[in-house]
Simulated scan of single mutants.
Amino acid sequence: MAKKTSKDRVAMIVAVVAIILIIVMSMTSNQREEMTVVERWIGNIVTPLQRTVSASTNVVAENARAIVQFSSIKASNEQLKEDIAIIQREMIDLRLERNELEELRELKHALNYIEEQENYQPIAANIIGKNPGNWFNTFTINVGRKHNVSKNDIVLEANGLVGRVYEAGDYWAKVVSIVDHNSSVSFQLLRDNTQQGILSGSITSELTGYLFDPLAEVVVGDKLVTSVLGVYPQGIVIGEVVEVAKSSDQLLKTVVVEPEVNFTRMSKVIVMKSLEQEGN
């Protein structure tokens, strides 16, 4: 009896559910201007869920787009940095090439000092090392015996006399400049070649010297050039007189000279190889 009652109850529930489904289907099968209470009830439940799902979907999509855009911008920035680095390197290379070209053009002026001398071969060189301190008293260049450079070859710069080679290897040479305390150079006044003397370097890299004639007329501002008495060809610019005085015994007229070459800043020089010396 109990089993029968339970079966009847299940059958009744199934029948009620079937009837409800039929009613719902009939109500939603046709177009209507107004919704039923059931439809409104279902809509009130479903709509908020749709809004939540839609908003979540939009947030996810926006985040996805932002991630993609960020990745794209980051890649573009990295590429831009690489392009800027390349451009900067190219600009530096061009600037170095331009500076080197200007230096070489300036060095051509040095040849004018001895352009009449056909027994010299010019050899361009870069300075690759120097003595400690601010002055280029002694320094090393990147040419040597393999480039036909040898001891006592003359070294010039665009503005005038630098010094001479005192030691040469196969691919390098060492130069002692006229401002070194071990150097000396004979000179003459540019405006009067009969007035001659000797200049020497010093530990303070100054050029000081005296004229052979104690009565020589020399004044501040006089230009000095090499004379025929020394190891250098005549007529190479040395510097300008900045001070004139008498020696303590009044027997010599002394001078202090500012070199024409800037011995605190050099990068290129010209070695003048004597072809006569090579022949010997």
Results as ranks from 00 to 15, higher is better:
Ala2Lys: 15
Thr5Cys: 14
Ser6Gln: 14
Ser6Pro: 01
Val10Leu: 15
Val10Trp: 01
Ile13Trp: 10
Val17Met: 13
Ala18Arg: 15
Ser26Gly: 07
Ser29Thr: 13
Arg32Lys: 11
Glu33Lys: 09
Ile42Cys: 12
Ile45Gly: 13
Thr52Lys: 14
Val53Asp: 03
Val53Trp: 13
Ala55Tyr: 09
Ala55Lys: 07
Ala61His: 11
Glu62Lys: 07
Phe70His: 11
Lys74Pro: 08
Lys81Cys: 08
Ile87Ser: 05
Gln88Ile: 15
Met91Trp: 11
Leu94Ser: 08
Leu96Asp: 10
Leu101Lys: 01
Leu104Asn: 04
Ile114Gln: 12
Ile114Tyr: 09
Glu115Lys: 15
Tyr120Gly: 12
Gln121Val: 15
Ile127Gly: 14
Lys130Arg: 15
Lys130Ala: 04
Pro132Ala: 11
Phe136Pro: 01
Phe136Trp: 01
Asn137Val: 09
Thr138Cys: 00
Ile141Cys: 06
Val149Asn: 10
Val149Pro: 04
Gly160Cys: 08
Val162Trp: 06
Tyr166Glu: 04
Trp172Gly: 06
Ala173Asn: 06
Ala173Leu: 12
Ala173Arg: 13
Val175Met: 14
Val176Met: 04
Asp180Asn: 08
Asp180Tyr: 01
Val185Cys: 11
Phe187Lys: 02
Phe187Asp: 04
Phe187Thr: 11
Gln188Leu: 02
Asn193Trp: 12
Gly197His: 01
Gly201Leu: 08
Ser205Asn: 04
Leu211Lys: 08
Asp213Arg: 15
Pro214Ile: 04
Ala216His: 03
Val220His: 00
Gly221Asp: 02
Asp222Arg: 01
Val225Gln: 00
Leu229Phe: 12
Leu229Cys: 08
Gly239Asp: 03
Gly239Leu: 06
Glu243Tyr: 12
Ser247Pro: 03
Ser247His: 03
Ser247Ala: 00
Leu252Ala: 07
Leu252Met: 00
Lys253His: 08
Thr254Ile: 05
Val257Phe: 01
Phe263Lys: 10
Phe263Asp: 05
Arg265Gly: 13
Lys268Met: 10
Val269Cys: 07
Val269Leu: 02
Met272Asp: 08
Ser274Val: 00
Leu275Gly: 07
Glu276Ala: 15
Gln277Asp: 09
Gln277His: 12
Asn280Thr: 07
Asn280Ile: 02
Asn280Val: 03
